[in-house]
């Protein structure tokens, strides 16, 4: 039991971080109708901004998280403008566009920030380890776990308790109906993509202390987010959170329990889930 305590905790922490990243992607897909392959690039952009802004003090850390969120939101705005012209042209055209934007964005990020791996400098209180059940555990991960729980809770409250949140959920269920109640769907789309980008930037900032940020960040986080979004039911935020924790646990407990199958675990799990799913996924024909 003790063997799995730390990996279990770690899996949940890691999963919740991924959940914030994936929540943005799943919102963009479910409520905005956009298959956004540039999502990983927004996460990386948030990571880079956070890594360069943070200087090891608490105010700079707060500034870093804010700046990353703002940059992510701005990126979301750019994507909203870019995809607005593609209404009704199907997901493949969106994939082509956002993949192109991702490639351009990756090149720009490398040009601006260099190809090196970057890590933010954290306040000393976070750059240490705590002892949990006799094992050391990094404080920055615990902080990220706490942040992730808070953000998830706020996100849930916003989605279920506010008018904007209800509107977003209604849009996921039925895009046409929202137009019927006098809300401009374009405005909803833009808002959703900006929020989605902000979540990406925030996730980037929270992940950077743990994983660092570099040229490989964008493709890696995009793949993980896609897996989570698909497993969580495409467009469902609670689904994404559950799936993200599942992915986190697979990546921690799974890989050390059956190390021989470690490379296969994640994608096989996704494929199995898709193949055995009885219900058609929301947001698509049968």
């Amino acid at each position: 039991m003790d063997t799995y305590l730390i990996p279990g905790l770690d899996g949940i922490a890691y999963g919740l971080l991924l959940a914030i990243a994936a929540a943005g992607l799943t919102l963009a897909f479910g409520a905005g109708g956009v298959l956004n392959l540039a999502h990983g690039t927004l996460i990386a952009a948030g990571g880079y901004v956070a890594a360069t802004t943070s200087t090891g003090t608490w105010p700079s850390l707060a500034a870093a998280v804010t700046a990353a969120t703002v940059v992510g939101a701005a990126g979301g705005g750019v994507l909203a403008a870019a995809t607005a012209r593609l209404r009704g042209r199907g997901h493949l055209d969106q994939a082509l566009l956002t993949f192109g934007i991702a490639l351009i964005g990756a090149d720009l990020l490398t040009t601006v920030f260099g190809a090196d791996i970057r890590r933010p400098r954290l306040p000393a209180a976070l750059d240490t380890t705590l002892t949990i059940a006799g094992h050391p555990y990094p404080a920055d991960r615990l902080a990220a776990l706490t942040a992730a729980v808070i953000i998830t809770t706020i996100g849930y409250a916003v989605l279920h308790r506010t008018r904007a949140g209800r509107l977003i959920r209604a849009t996921v269920d039925d895009r046409h109906m929202v137009a019927g109640i006098g809300v401009n769907p374009r405005a909803v789309d833009t808002t959703v993509l900006v929020v989605s980008g902000a979540l990406a930037g925030l996730a980037g900032a929270l992940c950077t202390p743990i994983l660092g940020v570099g040229p490989a960040t964008a493709p890696t986080t995009l793949l993980l987010s896609l897996v989570i979004v698909v497993c969580g039911g495409l467009g469902s935020v609670p689904g994404a959170v559950v799936a993200a924790i599942g992915v986190g646990l697979v990546q921690t407990i799974g890989v050390i329990t059956i190390p021989a199958l470690a490379p296969y675990l994640l994608l096989s799990a996704m494929a199995l889930l898709l193949l055995t799913r009885r219900r058609p996924l929301p947001g698509m024909p049968g």
Binding site: L35, H91, V230, Y264, L267, S268, M270, L275
Partner: peptide, 27 residues
């Protein structure tokens, strides 16, 4: 496995196929 599904599900399933192809080739 694939032709029973449609749209984005096929895309994601085939994404898994592509990734698993590389992994299998590597292993």
């Amino acid at each position: 496995l694939l032709v029973r599904h449609r749209g984005t599900v096929v895309l994601m399933l085939s994404l898994a196929v592509a990734e698993l192809t590389t992994i299998t080739a590597t292993q």
